[in-house]
Every structure is written in structure tokens, then in C-alpha cells.
Computed example of a mutant assay.
Amino acid sequence: DQFSRRWRNNPLISPLIAPHSTYSCKPETLQNALDIATKHHVPLHIHCSETRDEVYDVEKKYGVRPVGLLKKYGLLKNETILAHCGWITKNEILDMKNVGVSVAHCPVSNMKIATGGFAPVPELLDARVPVGLGTDGAASNNTLDMFETMKFCALVHKNHRWDPTILPAQTVVDLATRGGATTLGVQHSLGSLEGGKTADLIMIDLKKPHLTPLHDPVSHLVYAVRGTDVCTTIVNGAPLMLEKEFLTIDVEKTLEQSQKIALELTS
């Protein structure tokens, strides 16, 4: 509640309320989260149907699957973001469409922890459910590289469907840009380079052996570019990195502090 009040009108920080999941949060916690989100007009974010065990456990405990439980307590609504959705049904997709929820697809995380399923993105897009790409946390992704996530997104669906035409490169780039912005409810200011939108953008150094030759820039973004190829980052019109030079942080000091903190956490 305090966090939402503090950051709600900040141009760089967008608060949301994020109860973890239906299997780790009691109904009272879910209801409290909904109340805070409604009070401050901020989105809700929750893990949903990430694994088969989660679905079975929630259904055994509450008599309904995770999507049904969210619907029962009012969390299945517009401005709710469901992470993963690897074990959802066609009827649940219809419920999601009808109330206007969005989905964060995290293919790298799903594969690393072997969930056995991943969001049925083609069906979600056909139903016009907004879908964006996510990395999940470092524990289940490591690199948090959105270019890597785009590549895995394209490949996992092609492999699963036995169809190389599923999720073409442009669709995947859209998921990572416009789709992400729509999922977060900020599509009017972010997600594409247009007049009147916030100047959040990156530039990529294409003069690399693994990016040569260049035939199709969009395909390159999905299948060849890496996060380390980004040479310039601009946020809200302010340069944070120019030609690989960091302008706002001491890189060596930051790396040293990060290693020290990591050792403290694991010791």
C-alpha cells in the first residue's frame, strides 16, 4: 500500500501488486491484494498455472483450477497479468479474453525448471488476449536476456507444433515490444517508436561476425542478436549507455558489490 502511494506517479517506476500465486497465497491474501490494487488503480500480477502439479494441487484444495479460483475472488479482470499460463485450457482462454487479462510468457524459465508446458501463445493471440514476453527471475533464467527469450519463444513453439511457420520473427518482436507494453497497460506511451511516446529505446551494434551478413533485420533480432550487442540505451529520453560507455553507474564498483552481496546471501 505504501509502495503504491509512493511511486504511482513516478515517470520511471510503475507499481503493481503481485501476490505470488494461488497455491502459495491464501484467499484472504488474494483478496487483500485485489483491494490494494483497486484502491490505487494499479495492475495485479500473479503466477498462474505454471506447472501441472500447481493446477492439480489448487483444484484438490479449492475445488477449482487456478484460473477459476482467480475468477471466484475477482482477480481475473482487466489490468491483471497472469505469468506463465503453461497449463490452461481453451475454456480458460475464453474466460481470460472476456475479462481482458494479459499473459506474460516466460519460455526460458519454463524450460529450465521443466514445467512440461508453456503458454499456448498462438491460441491466446487468436483469442486477442494480450501477450508479452518475460524472463522471470534469475533463479530460473540466469541471463535475463530478452533477445535470448525471443529466440526461445520462437523455437519452442515451432518445435512443439512441428510447424516452422508458427510465431514468425515479426510476431515475436511484437510480443517483446508492443505486446509487453500492452500487457503492462502502458501501450499509449511505450512499446513502439512513435511521435508522442516516451523515448525508451536501444541501439544494436551490427558490425559483429555473428551478425554478418545481414539479410533480414527482424529475423536477426530474434535469432542472432544477443543482449551484449546492445551499444546504446536511452530511457525516458536520457542516455544511460552510449557506445558501450555507462554514464550513470560505476561498472567496476557495481560488479564488485554484486559479487559481495551474492556471497553474503549464500554463505
Rank of each mutant, 00 (worst) to 15 (best):
D205R: 01
K158A: 01
L76K: 06
T22W: 02
A154K: 07
N159G: 02
L155M: 15
T29A: 14
V101C: 11
P217S: 00
L82Q: 10
A138V: 13
I46K: 09
V58S: 03
L76Q: 05
V101D: 05
G117S: 13
V67W: 03
R6A: 07
H105S: 09
Y23M: 08
W87F: 15
N110S: 05
V99F: 08
C153D: 02
G134H: 10
L124T: 03
L265K: 09
K90F: 00
K112A: 06
E252S: 15
E28F: 04
Q259N: 15
N32T: 06
F147G: 05
T165H: 15
G132S: 13
W7R: 00
M146N: 10
S267H: 09
G196H: 00
V108I: 12
G63T: 06
S267T: 10
I204A: 08
M150R: 11
G227Q: 03
K97R: 01
Y23N: 14
G74D: 05
N142H: 13
H84S: 12
D250H: 11
D229W: 03
I46N: 04
T29F: 10
E264G: 04
A83Y: 07
S189Y: 02
Y62C: 02
I88K: 03
A37R: 02
D53T: 11
H157R: 13
P209T: 10
L30D: 15
C48E: 02
P130K: 00
D200I: 00
V230M: 03
P43D: 11
K61Y: 04
T198K: 08
K90R: 01
H41S: 07
T22D: 06
I46E: 07
K72E: 09
K39W: 08
L34C: 04
S192P: 05
D57C: 01
P130T: 00
F152S: 09
E28Q: 07
T233I: 04
H45T: 02
S267K: 08
S49V: 08
R6L: 08
V55G: 03
I17W: 13
T29Y: 12
C231K: 08
L265A: 10
E59W: 12
M96E: 04
N78M: 10
L133C: 15
A176H: 04
L155Y: 14
P217Q: 00
K26G: 07
L190P: 00
R5K: 08
L69S: 03
I249A: 13
G237T: 07
V121T: 03
H157T: 06
T38S: 13
L201F: 10
D53E: 15
A104Q: 07
D250F: 03
P43K: 05
K61A: 11
T182M: 12
P27E: 09
H20C: 11
N98W: 01
A114R: 11
G137V: 12
W87G: 05
E256V: 01
S102G: 13
L69E: 02
T254R: 15
P209M: 06
E256Y: 01
G237L: 12
